[in-house]
C-alpha cells in the first residue's frame, strides 16, 4: 500500500492503495466515481475511457503509480451540469440502450471532437473503433457525434 495524491475532476484527492492498482479501480472503489466502467480489463473495449491531461485514455491497465498528479477527467467531471455538447447530443439522439458503454463512448467522442471539431465518417469510425457497444448503438453514436460537432 502506498499513498497517492491525485487530481481528479479538478479536485485533489488522496488515496491509499496498492501501487499497481489501475486507475479504473481507484476511481470505482476508492473515490466513489463509478461512472467509468469495467468491460474487459485488457484495453479492448473502451468502457473505462477517461481523459488524462485532456487525452482519451483507457484506465483499466493504467497503474495509479503512473498517473501522478496529471489531470484526470472522468464522465462525472466532463461538464458541470451534464451539458457538454457531446452529452447533449447523446440525449438528443437517445443513444443508449443498456447504457453501460456510453460513458466510455462519450469520453472518447469528446476527446475526438477536441482534436478534430468536424470529423469525417472515416475519422469517427477510426477514433471510435476501440469502443465496443454490445447493444449496437453505433448508428446513433455516429449521428450524435455529428450533431455535437455541428452544435
Amino acid at each position: 500500500m502506498a499513498t497517492f495524491n491525485l487530481n481528479i475532476n479538478g479536485k485533489k484527492q488522496q488515496v491509499d492503495v496498492d501501487a499497481d492498482t489501475p486507475l479504473l479501480w481507484v476511481l470505482r472503489d476508492h473515490v466513489n466515481l463509478v461512472g467509468t466502467k469495467y468491460g474487459c480489463g485488457i484495453n479492448q473495449c473502451g468502457a473505462c475511457t477517461v481523459h488524462l491531461n485532456g487525452v482519451a485514455m483507457r484506465s483499466c491497465m493504467l497503474p495509479i503509480s503512473q498517473v501522478g498528479e496529471q489531470a484526470v477527467t472522468t464522465i462525472e467531471g466532463l461538464s458541470e451540469n451534464g451539458d457538454h455538447p457531446v452529452q447533449k447530443a447523446w440525449i438528443e439522439h437517445d443513444v443508449a440502450q443498456c447504457g453501460y458503454c456510453q460513458a466510455g463512448q462519450i469520453m472518447n467522442a469528446a476527446a475526438l471532437l477536441k482534436n478534430s471539431p468536424n470529423p469525417s465518417d472515416e475519422e469517427i469510425e477510426g477514433a471510435m473503433a476501440g469502443n465496443i457497444c454490445r447493444c449496437g448503438t453505433y448508428v446513433r453514436i455516429k449521428a450524435a457525434i455529428k450533431t455535437a460537432a455541428a452544435g
Partner: peptide, 23 residues
Amino acid sequence: TPRKNVDGKKLYTGQPLFGLDIQ
C-alpha cells in the same frame, strides 16, 4: 409518441445505476 430514455441523463453523466456500481 417518441419519448426519451428516462435514465438518459443519468447514464450520460456517469451516475450509479448498475449492479457493479453498488457501494
